[in-house]
Structures are given as structure tokens and as C-alpha cells.
Amino acid sequence: MAIALETCHALREAAALLGRAPAARFLGGGTLLVRALNEGEADFSTLVRCLDPSLAEIRASGPRIRIGAAVTMARILATRELDFLHSAARSVGGPAVRAQATLGGNLFAPPPYGDLCAALLALDARVSVQSGYSARDVSVEDFLRERGNGAGRTLVAGVELTRPRDSRAFRFLKVSKVRPKGVSMLTMAARLEESGGRLSGVRVVYANMAPAPARAAAVERALEGRRLDRTGIEAAAAVASEGFSPPTDSLASSWYRRAVAPVHLSRLLTGDSKRSA
């Protein structure tokens, strides 16, 4: 079955086409879509491409940052102002995948993918969504909740987020069984900002512990208002797997993920992530 490729030049035009055409998908970098095509698993008949320059834009001069959905991992890595996202972007595949994989696609990537998405959730980013002619902003959390329903129908234009206060306030860790570039068995991201020596507004996110990247609420509660010292880290590690019933797949069993989560969480929090990565 032949697949039609439609090229649009404006965001709204693309969004309208997505809403109208049957079985249409937005084409990001295509790392997942073209693979599905090759495998004979395409559940779409039209691919919509959009050359609107706003999709490829990065605005990062001030504290409030905007990144277009078509921005690739390679572009993030080449942008010094986005240095806090470099560890997450670098963790996505090898250089060729990174040159092609987009931020927008990563927000939709199913497990074991979605490493950048986990980072964006930890940074409390907002996703700009274009449905037909109407645009709105949702949190990554809400976006992920709705993701299954509207897949392919809505267009993500980009994300907006606030730069973490300092480089140590954002941590990212990807655990893989294949070096140097394997898919994630477990990914962790955390925003650890302090005020007056105590953690406040803590965010801790796991990917591959649940069907989509998710916040570790028990860990966040355990850390909130505390110092990031040994006792604080031990308290967090003690509840590392709480609230999660992780999947069993070819990479690891549910039991294994629960068992190692505290170890990797401790490394993330102590900043000793080299040992896990």
C-alpha cells in the first residue's frame, strides 16, 4: 500500500490536514514512522510534513525557553544555551539517530523510548498543541495522559520551559545494558532546586517504570523540604519504587527494575551517575 507524503508550509495548514485526512500521521524525523513503514506495520496512509520555520526554532536567550517540535537531538546538543538538556539529548541513540530524532517525536515515542520526554517532564515543560486552528498549552504530565487518545490528530508545535537555576539542579540518568548506545532499561530525571539549603519544588521522573514517563510521587514527597544529604538520599531510596509496578520485557523483569531503582536513584541524587550510565 502506497503512503502519501503531504508537505505543508504553515503550522495551521498541517494541523488542519492532520485533523481531516484519514489515518494521517505527522512526520517528525521519521525514525519511528519509517521503521514502522519498513516493517509493514504502518497504521497510517498519509504522512504530513511541515516546513514552517517556527517548528525548527529555538529561543533560549532568557530564562523562559522555547524549543520547536522539529528541533533534533543534534541541534539541542549544538546549542550551548540548552546545555542542561545535553545529557538527555545525547542519550538518544547514536549520532545518526540524533541527527534525525525530533523533540516532537520523542514526546510520542513509546517505551523503551522517550528519554528526552522524561527530562521535559522533570523540568515541568509545557507543550504547545495545535488542533485544527486552535492552539493551547498543556503540561507534559497532562499531555502524556491524553497522548494515547489523540495520537496523530494533534500537532505539537513545541515546548516551553524554564531554565533550571544552576547546572546541578537538573540531573539525568539513563541505564542501559548495551554500551555505549543502548535503549533504556530505566531512565531517571530530577529537578532539584534548593531554597535556603532545602529542596523545594522537587521533581523526580522515571521512564520505563510505567507505560509512559511518570513522576515518582513518593520520592518527591520524601525529598521535599529536605537537604540533599545522606539521610535525605536514603529516605528517597527507601521509597524509590513505591507506586510503580514496572513492566517485564526483554530488557528486564518487573522485579529487577524495582530492585535496582533505589540504587540508580541514589546515584542520580549523589551525582554519581557515571557509574550507572
Partner: peptide
């Protein structure tokens, strides 16, 4: 199948030619 597209490494198998 890695080739260079405008100097960047790309996987020819998952790149649509039209792009």
C-alpha cells in the same frame, strides 16, 4: 547504511528520500 546528508550522519534505511 550510514551516509552523510549535508555533512550529518544519517541512517538511509529510516530516512525518506523525499525529505
Amino acid at each position: 547504511c550510514t551516509v552523510l546528508v549535508d555533512g550529518e550522519p544519517r541512517l538511509a534505511c529510516i530516512t525518506l528520500a523525499a525529505t
